[in-house]
Design a binder for these strands. Structure first.
Lengths: 469, 469
DNA sequence: GGGTATTTGTCCGTATGTATG
DNA sequence: TCATACATACGGACAAATACC
């Protein structure tokens, strides 16, 4: 008889304990293939539990393939080589997959703080979605997304971003990459795309992958240089005017006008406005989207809930000018919307019931606090650094004075557990005049920020001194 | 087993619904005296509710005298003659008028029966996913999909479809359209695609939209004609060998070998195997996927959970041959996975815990019943029709003899509330020798099937007679 | 070798505790 | 507090396999 200590007092169910015990015995080879398990009666009597408790444990083992049942004869340990192999492979691959080991101090510009995700609200809404009288949502939905959600987004974009459109112009899709794919089907790929340099590389990769010619357009403190744009043969300008990625530059009104004017000059010119983190602005008045000033149907506005809610949600949207919408409807409306309708329904309620706004405010306060704390900590550098773009977004830009060997500096930081990205990696062509470091703070707590900055300071001093020697 | 659609979403308690349903069945004589009710366990599992819920319903029936309990044996329908006289409450269920535009008798080949979706299980898994304190799933995930889900799919595909691959070859995406988009990025669009004629038009639209040259290849009773394929300059063959859409043809083994051989002959030939509804096969042994016999890395296997679980889920997968996987990893792995990670986590658990298999079995039984009922009802046509493709899938093909003006027939049907699609609409080029009608039955109840068929019969007689006059 | 008692998997109804709203 | 639903655990009934006389 197997020796097993069961604990009725524990919250873990008895059958679960039995199941796990036997499973382990099988896994580690104590119980070999073909061995007969004790009969449910004997075992039940021995353990002084009900037979059905044993039954439950046995049937779980059965359904997972650890044992086989021969009716009226007994339960026998199955050939578990396959199962074992699978879990072995699983472990191995997990090791390799988990190779993107997270360092203790990741100042990554991507990523958001999920500690404050409204799990309970989300769960409640989920439940409602599944309970409500709408099994209809389990059928196929609208090609560009559910009307309710598009309408909710329209209202939100209108009120908080000044975007002017009607809900039919909004196309939902699972992520910006997919939306760009769709857009490429609308526009065709026979264009040259102009991107701010440096820029959001993910978008750059998509464009080049899709076969676009991509040109990096220089930036100054007002954003993309329109004169350079006008001289080039670029027809599509991809910009992030609200908060340029990664520099944090905000495009002022006259530059915006110039950009819109540029687009209006020729028929096949368009502007893709990626409003990727417009939600988080801490000082000064919010800057409306470019799209709101576009009178000529030239701006394709794109946004996402990845930063504001969670990357896992994977809901993005784009607002098409009517001219392009017509093409979409004619040529592409047979594509089904890629966003799960359950998520759409939840998100729709989330916005409509005001949770989104509350959540945004909460997160804005939270991030503002982190931002301020980071700025506070950075003061230990005194005059040795220049900080840029700290009034918005989830990262700041830092230029360390008197630093030359950036590669070694970055590597040393990495070895100390600090991961920082450099702005030069975001350049399509050329290099920055001054190397800058991108300090994302969204996922970090105050302790991490403080300790991380101290490590950076420490190394910075070493590297700087070494240079001066 | 009793067929009963329960509505977790209605405010009416589940046990009340069960109670009323059985009471009605007893009253109207469907359940006769002495009939044994399903055991609480079986019934609970079938309906995906707790046994106690069934118990509540049963004990209410018991206390009102509709059934008798024989301890340790079961519940049996009582002699209810007296009761019927007393409580003859002819209560009609609330007639919530249909709000949708849909016709009463939609024999649509798309769509699935959502009445038996395991809402409770799904909700429970959702809850776990959101509770499990693994806020990790709210961060950005693997480009081709979460490992756990891909591994679960791998095991499922291996066991039930004979697909041979490892989980890294599986790419998840939100829907077949998106996956074809991705695939086009891997292969390039400089190919000619050969499709079965008639075929799945959605795929056809995607291919043409993406710029592929598409050629319709004739079919015979064994599927796509390989001789015609070989003569053409087609390089990519899109096929549905398990259950051709829409004809229902199953590709036999020698035709499969010929197809694989065709692909192996030249380097840039590939086969896209769309296994869109392989889950539902009612007679004969299941047919393994083509992919399992492919020794040369030529088959791209595609599948989806839209039919087996719900279209709203929007999770599809494709299995890439290693050669193409390398290209994907090199060129496209920067694309984020388009499937919500929450859905991925839920689905992963759903499969791993065996719910998927149970659900499939339940749905197969359900659809088989509907299929049989439809076939039964079609007997009123006697020799006037030929039915094809009724051993699998969610639709059957019907050829009405002696019918000529199909347009007017279809229109008349529509006016009577019956919507049927014709096979000629699925042709890329040319027309069928004999027009056939596609009768999808997934979403219809028995009453709808019966009444719909009667309307069709009625109109058929009219149209036929008119012709003979 | 054939009948019989025992063992065994399987199925059954029942009872109690708990989470949720 | 109460209704609802689910999780866990209990012991009896049955038929097939098995052991034993």
């Amino acid at each position: 008889m197997l020796t097993i200590g069961i604990d009725t007092k524990k919250k873990e169910p008895i059958y679960e304990q039995i199941y796990k015990y036997i499973r382990n015995e099988i896994k580690n080879g104590t119980l070999t293939r073909g061995t007969r398990l004790p009969s449910s009666r004997k075992f039940a009597e021995y353990l002084d539990v009900s037979r059905n408790t044993i039954d439950l444990a046995y049937s779980q083992l059965l359904s997972e393939g650890y044992v086989e049942s021969k009716p009226k004869k007994g339960y026998f340990v199955a050939d578990v080589d396959e199962i074992l192999e699978i879990s072995d492979v699983l472990q191995e691959e997990e090791e390799t997959a988990g190779k993107k080991e997270t360092l203790p101090y990741e100042f990554a510009p991507s990523g958001v703080d999920m500690g404050h995700f409204p799990y309970n609200t989300w769960r409640k809404l989920m439940k409602n979605v599944l309970m409500d009288d709408n099994s209809e949502i389990f059928q196929k939905g609208d090609s560009s997304g559910d009307y309710e959600l598009r309408e909710a987004i329209r209202i939100y974009l209108h009120q908080s971003r000044g975007v002017i459109c009607n809900s039919s112009q909004i196309i939902l899709g699972s992520g910006m990459e997919y939306l760009l794919l769709l857009l490429s089907q609308i526009l065709g790929t026979d264009y040259t795309v102009g991107m701010e340099n440096p820029t959001y590389l993910q978008a750059y990769r998509v464009f080049t992958q899709l076969g676009y010619k991509v040109l990096g357009i220089s930036m100054n403190e007002m954003g993309m240089r329109i004169d350079e744009l006008a001289k080039s043969d670029v027809q599509i300008a991809y910009v992030t005017p609200s908060h340029q990625y990664p520099t944090g530059t905000v495009m002022p009104i006259n530059r915006r006008s110039a950009l819109l004017k540029w687009a209006a000059e020729k028929e096949h010119r368009f502007i893709i406005e990626d409003d990727y983190d417009s939600e988080f602005r801490y000082y000064g008045k919010p800057i409306p989207a470019l799209q709101g000033n576009d009178k000529n149907g030239k701006v394709i506005y794109m946004g996402t809930f990845s930063k504001a809610i969670a990357p896992a949600i994977r809901v993005g949207y784009m607002v098409l000018p009517k001219q392009l919408l017509a093409i979409y409807q004619e040529k592409l409306s047979f594509y089904s919307c890629t966003v799960s309708r359950i998520d759409q329904a939840i998100l729709s309620e989330f916005i409509r019931e005001g949770h989104f706004e509350r959540h945004l405010n909460r997160m804005r306060t939270l991030y503002k606090g982190k931002n301020q704390y980071l700025m506070q900590q950075l003061k230990i550098f005194g005059e040795d650094i220049i900080v840029k773009g700290s009034s918005a977004g989830l990262h700041v830009l830092v230029e360390f004075k008197g630093l030359e060997d950036h590669d070694r500096f970055e590597k040393s930081l990495y070895e100390k557990g600090v991961k920082i990205q450099r702005i030069s990696h975001y350049y399509i062509t050329g290099k920055p005049e001054k190397e800058c470091y991108i300090l994302g703070f969204a996922r970090l707590g105050e302790t991490q920020i403080r300790e991380g900055i101290l490590i950076i300071k420490d190394l910075y001093d070493k590297f700087r001194i070494r240079k001066e020697e």
